[in-house]
């Protein structure tokens, strides 16, 4: 029997979730709640409502919370308390405290499943890289470096993403958090966080660039540049290992604007192995099919239908990513204050 679902919010993510539900036998989309009449007008073939309270109805098994950040904690917690399984988009709220509050409710409702939409883990390049890392054929991960950025985009200035009271943060919380989740996916947990942020171009009073440096007790380092001023859409994660390196660049997306997703696999070579030192031959894998949404949602359905514990994109993973964001904001604000004092 499929999971009977309500989708709360029919924006970019709500549309994707509905599309995937319709292509899967594991889900039955029952209801979509959306306050915007223009967005509701795009819907058909499913019950439509402007009343979010409808998601708590008895005929709903699971709720997909696809709202702006400020609504995510409240609806996630209330849905769990109402006996619903919940799939919530990232970020899990506007602050570190939000995810801690959600986890407190999750612990009270231990028979319900809660998963977060850290979708990038399920992209083919990341899945393949993870398998290579876990196989240890290239040794231990030494460091990770990520670039993730965009050029703003259509209606960027008026987007809820750039209203602090709604989003809670800028580009780091909106997009950079995906990269931080990937850092956690590939490495041991990070405990030290240093960061600089700026809002030099868009001036939304939210950061449009963030530089974050991380360290963990195992000696792994990571570095992120998250940007809303890249002008050319760009995604790249480099993973340095003892015996080689992996790079995922480009990203399969609806618009295709991040370029073709590729995984580069390089193997370390020294002068006793080759003349081409420092320039090893690389294998480049080109991916054309993005099954990330399907894989992610099937995992959620499997947990719900077979009463399995959630092990991917859990609240703990959400907490770990939000803790880094929180520490980055704290660290960068301290520096900004110091800088202001010096000036």
């Amino acid at each position: 029997m499929p999971v009977k679902c309500a989708i709360l919010g029919f924006g970019y993510m709500g549309e994707i979730r509905l599309r995937e539900m319709r292509e899967s036998e594991l889900f039955e989309p029952v209801l979509v709640c959306e306050p915007d009449p223009e967005k509701r007008a795009k819907l058909s073939g499913v019950e439509i409502s402007d009343d979010p309270e409808q998601i708590f109805r008895n005929d709903i098994d699971a709720v997909f919370v696809c709202t702006p950040n400020d609504k995510i904690p409240d609806f996630t917690c209330r849905a769990l308390k109402a006996g619903k399984h919940v799939f919530a988009e990232k970020p899990p709220g506007r602050s570190y405290q939000d995810i801690k509050d959600i986890i407190a409710v999750e612990e009270e409702c231990s028979d319900r499943k809660l998963m977060f939409g850290f979708n990038h883990r399920y992209h083919p390049g990341m899945q393949r890289a993870k398998k290579i890392i876990d196989k240890k054929s290239l040794g231990r991960v030494l460091w990770v470096r990520g670039l993730y950025g965009k050029s703003g985009g259509k209606n960027f200035a008026s987007s809820w993403r750039n209203k602090k009271e709604v989003s809670g943060g800028g580009i780091l919380l909106d997009q950079g958090i995906h990269m931080l989740d990937l850092f956690n996916f590939f490495c041991e947990p990070f405990n030290e966080v240093k960061a600089f942020t700026s809002d030099a171009y868009w001036q939304f009073e939210l950061e449009d660039n963030a530089f974050v440096i991380l360290k963990n007790p195992e000696g792994q380092n990571a570095m992120l540049h998250s940007s809303a001023t890249f002008w050319k859409h760009r995604f790249q994660i480099d993973i340095g290992l003892e015996e080689g390196y992996l790079t995922v660049q480009g990203f399969l997306s609806k618009s295709g604007s991040y370029g073709r997703e590729t995984l580069i696999i390089g193997r370390k070579q020294f002068e006793d192995e080759t003349d081409a030192i420092g320039n090893p031959s690389e294998e480049i894998i080109y991916f054309d099919k993005d099954l990330s949404w399907q894989i992610e949602m099937e995992k959620f359905a499997d947990c719900v239908l077979n009463d399995r514990p959630v092990t991917d994109s859990t609240s703990a993973h959400a907490l770990a990513a939000m803790e880094i964001v929180h520490k980055a904001y704290v660290d960068s604000s301290t520096k900004n204050i110091d800088s202001a004092r010096q000036n």
Binding site: P124, S281, E282, E283, I284, I285, D288
Partner: peptide, 10 residues
């Protein structure tokens, strides 16, 4: 369907 490129000294 995926494809790869590989550069070997053949």
């Amino acid at each position: 369907m995926e494809f790869s490129t590989v550069f070997l000294d053949v």
